[in-house]
Design a protein around this nucleic acid. Structure first.
Lengths: 141, 141
DNA sequence: ATTATTGCAAACCCTTTGCAACTTA
DNA sequence: TAAGTTGCAAAGGGTTTGCAATAAT
């Protein structure tokens, strides 16, 4: 029950940032890692076994996770977001189904070329977004 | 005053979709085309010389423009959006300053390879998002 | 003890919607 | 006159914030 399947490195990073390991935080982490696709905040809350009113806590934790770069936030076309645990410092790009949010990672990434180009133009604190959206076979009307 | 600098093709497309050319719509189009960068809905409203309460009208028009594919909506990292007129049916990718929204178009686009890959995986109605964010030289602290 | 986290409640803010009045074609 | 558009006012809905109570180190 209290045994976690969370990557120790993730726990180390969180503690290193001054964070404490609460039961809810642990549950949220476990919930996140149990998904095989990026999930909404609400889905995370539910899978973590938290009450609806705990959605705030979920958001606060997601923010904390993002700060230590173990979580990625993906924008959907409707203005909402999906969240996904990442290897520390990594980020991914996806092919995402607009309906069921099933997603698979794409093996493309522009980090190098893009960041170089952006830096050459005087930009700093560079990040980028690359996502492909569609409707998957199962969700096709 | 009533002379518009709007691409006739755009007007043709709008009319073809059943839209009517009202004064406000025209002003919104002109405002959009006057920007040298993607703009927020609020910025469009202001530049169009519309009252704050007309922001609704701006949004409704932006939606109409998007439908005929002469406008692109770009998500920012904070959950809001920028809007930009496009050549009919086209779309662009950008290097955008998080602070001033200054943007330049990137000469990369994944349409072909990505859409092919996505189709091969059974996806339909494919679209994609590719934006690079940073802080430009002028906005650097 | 000290500092982080949670709980509750409410605010935020961009964006959307309903419906009646008003234009455009 | 028929259909699209605007005005007004309000709701939506994901996300954030303030502050006191609580839990972790």
């Amino acid at each position: 029950m209290s045994v976690t399947n969370i990557d120790p490195e993730i726990i180390r990073l969180l503690k290193g940032s001054g964070a404490r390991m609460t039961q809810k935080r642990q549950r949220i982490l476990e919930a996140l890692s149990s998904f095989d696709r990026p999930a909404t905040a609400e889905e995370v809350r539910e899978r973590a076994g938290l009450a609806p009113s705990d959605l705030v806590t979920v958001y606060r934790n997601l923010e904390a996770f993002q700060k230590v770069q173990i979580l990625q936030r993906l924008p959907l076309e409707n203005g909402t977001h999906l969240f996904e645990l990442t290897a520390p410092g990594e980020h991914y790009h996806h092919l995402i189904c607009r309906h069921c949010h099933k997603a698979e990672r794409l093996d493309v990434c522009l980090s190098k070329s893009m960041e170089a180009k952006a830096k050459a133009k005087g930009f700093s604190q560079i990040s980028h977004l690359l996502e492909v959206y569609g409707v998957c076979e199962d969700c096709r009307a």
